[in-house]
Structures are given as C-alpha cells and as structure tokens.
Design a protein around this nucleic acid. Sequence first.
DNA 1: GAACTGACTTGAT
DNA 2: AATCAAGCCAGTT
Length: 110
Amino acid sequence: MNKQPASKAGEKSFFARVYQMVGRIPSGRVASYGQIAILAGAPRAARMVGWALHAIPADRDLPWHRVVGEDGRIRLDQGSGQRALLAAEGVEFDHEGRIDMCRFRWQPEG
DNA sequence: GAACTGACTTGAT
DNA sequence: AATCAAGCCAGTT
C-alpha cells in the first residue's frame, strides 16, 4: 500500500500517468498498451499499463475499454464487455474480433 | 531489499 | 502463419 507519498509531492505515480492518458483517449478511438506506456513515459511498460488498468478504482470514470492490444485485439477474456463498449462508440470489429488499428488507433497529436 | 507478478510486445523457431 | 520464449517496467509481497 502507499503508506508513503508516491515519489515527490506533485509527481504522480506511473499509474496516475496511465490513467491520465487513458482518459485522453477520445470516444470511437482506441490505443494500445504500449502506446499508453510510451505516452506515460515508459516505452516498455506495456505490461504495467495493463496492470494499471486492472487497478483502476471504480471511482475512476476512465475509458479503460479503449485500450486494446497492439494487434487491435482485446487482451481480456470475454465477459468484460469491452468489445460491446467499443462497438457502442462506433469502433468496428472484423470477423476475427479485431479492430483496424490503422483507422481507429488514437493519435495523440490532435 | 530481493523476488514475483502482470489486461504486453517483439523477435526467433 | 502459428507457436514459443525472453525482455521489459513498475508495483506488490
């Protein structure tokens, strides 16, 4: 548990960074774990991103469902409803349940 | 303080 | 093209 302050005052944990980036993903767009990791400042912490999302408190209204694998496929077991959430936002899935990352990948430039 | 873990990614076989 | 293995970072125990 965080009995001590995360790093220094003002600096948030890597998790908080991830949450912030995930929160910036616009509706109808998706980002990969690795992408979020890069944006969060850890180009190789893709696994941590997944763990961070796993640790998202219910209070957070983060669009965690907009984070998928680099191949555009959901890395969660069915039951999370992630695919349904994305489909509801206009994200299209192919017959293999994969997203066309070329079209739906979120590009933080704008 | 060391070891383990994980909603990943990439490269090799 | 599919499967296997290793690497990676940060948090948790």
